[in-house]
């Protein structure tokens, strides 16, 4: 399957010829000019080419990440940051396991992630299937549908705060027009998380739509023709041809969307800051609070690393279940 391992594409085999054998560094002291020629020669060229990218990524991503691991082992907080923090080993992690608010935040994240994914995936798949069948509609509407996905979190957040406004928001205006009582969307302890989920579905659906549409394009038409010859109905073709072939792409899509949604906190920071009464305190938001509201940098770092572990576990789970290419 082409999607199975995205890191190796067919281009790899195509380019095997143009490539170079593995660079075997020769031991021993080389005469200076030879060393220079070697260093800038064909053999080392790819390394020079990737060097700027690697150097940048190392300094702003890998190094901070490793530092984060180190910080998570210290009791680093705003009150000792200028003096130096004590090393506490795994105490931050141990405390996290006994932190009721952390478990509360996991529960809120679960609602947020599941709600968002169910909405985004259902809508995204539906639109992708429609677009795949009707290129005319796709050409016209695709640019419109992706608008939410390319807006900033600030703009998305305030747009929805304005939509949800109790007095002047469009949603309550609609409810009042229908004779229904208005709702305090973002200030209601049960409603707030779903209000965030709706805003997030609005924001994230375009990605799933594009992703699945691209995956659908990769399914050869011959398979459908064959299915039609066999007398399959539209639904049967979908069930037995499209769905199994879409599976790997669905797995990757779910992994990406789950991670993004679990890690997401920018719109929550803008819209509710975790309130009311912690009703929208997701794990990512709780991490932000610990680091930047309570000044507990070490504890915050530990939360991010636990989040990363949860992400990795979820990714594995998806690959094992949804991602299996075998059809049942």
């Amino acid at each position: 399957m082409a999607h199975d391992n995205p890191a190796t594409t067919d281009a790899e085999s195509r380019n095997a010829r143009g490539g170079l054998p593995g660079a075997h560094a020769q031991r021993g002291v080389l005469p200076f000019p030879v060393f220079l020629r070697r260093a800038f020669g064909e053999r080392w060229l790819p390394y020079w080419l990737v060097l700027p990218m690697l150097a940048l990524l190392f300094s702003v991503t890998v190094f901070p990440f490793l530092w984060n691991v180190w910080v998570s082992l210290q009791d680093l907080r705003s009150t000792n940051i200028l003096r130096g923090a004590p090393f506490v080993g795994l105490r931050n992690y141990w405390q996290l396991l006994h932190d009721p608010l952390f478990y509360h935040s996991l529960k809120v994240s679960l609602y947020f992630v599941v709600g968002s994914i169910v909405g985004q995936f259902t809508l995204g798949l539906l639109i992708a299937l429609i677009f795949h069948r009707r290129p005319g509609a796709a050409r016209l509407l695709r640019p419109v549908f992706i608008v939410p996905w390319i807006l900033s979190a600030i703009i998305i957040g305030y747009s929805w705060i304005w939509m949800y406004d109790y007095n002047f928001g469009l949603i309550n205006a609609g409810l009042r027009a229908l004779g229904l009582p208005p709702v305090r969307w973002l200030n209601d302890v049960t409603m707030a998380i779903w209000a965030l989920v709706i805003a997030n579905i609005w924001r994230g659906t375009p990605f799933t739509m594009l992703f699945l549409e691209a995956a659908l394009k990769n399914i050869p038409d011959e398979l459908y023709e064959a299915a039609q010859v066999d007398g399959a109905t539209g639904w049967q073709a979908f069930r037995h041809v499209t769905l199994p072939l879409l599976r790997p792409a669905v797995a990757i899509n779910l992994i990406l969307v789950t991670m993004w949604t679990f890690n997401l906190f920018d719109t929550i920071l803008v819209m509710t800051q975790g309130g009311p009464a912690n009703a929208t305190l997701t794990t990512a938001m709780y991490m932000y609070n610990n680091a930047f509201k309570y000044g507990l940098f070490g504890y915050g770092a530990a939360i991010t690393l636990v989040m990363l572990l949860i992400n990795a576990a979820l990714a594995l789970l998806y690959l094992r279940t949804v991602g299996r290419a075998t059809t049942t």
């Binding site: 702003v60 991503t61 190094f63 901070p64 990440f65 530092w67 984060n68 910080v71 991670m259 890690n263 906190f265 990512a284 991490m287 932000y288 680091a291 940098f297 915050g300 770092a301 991010t304 690393l305 989040m307 990363l308 992400n311």
Partner: peptide, 8 residues
């Protein structure tokens, strides 16, 4: 997540 690198 970019969140991870904010503190460091």
């Amino acid at each position: 997540p970019p969140l991870i690198s904010v503190i460091p």
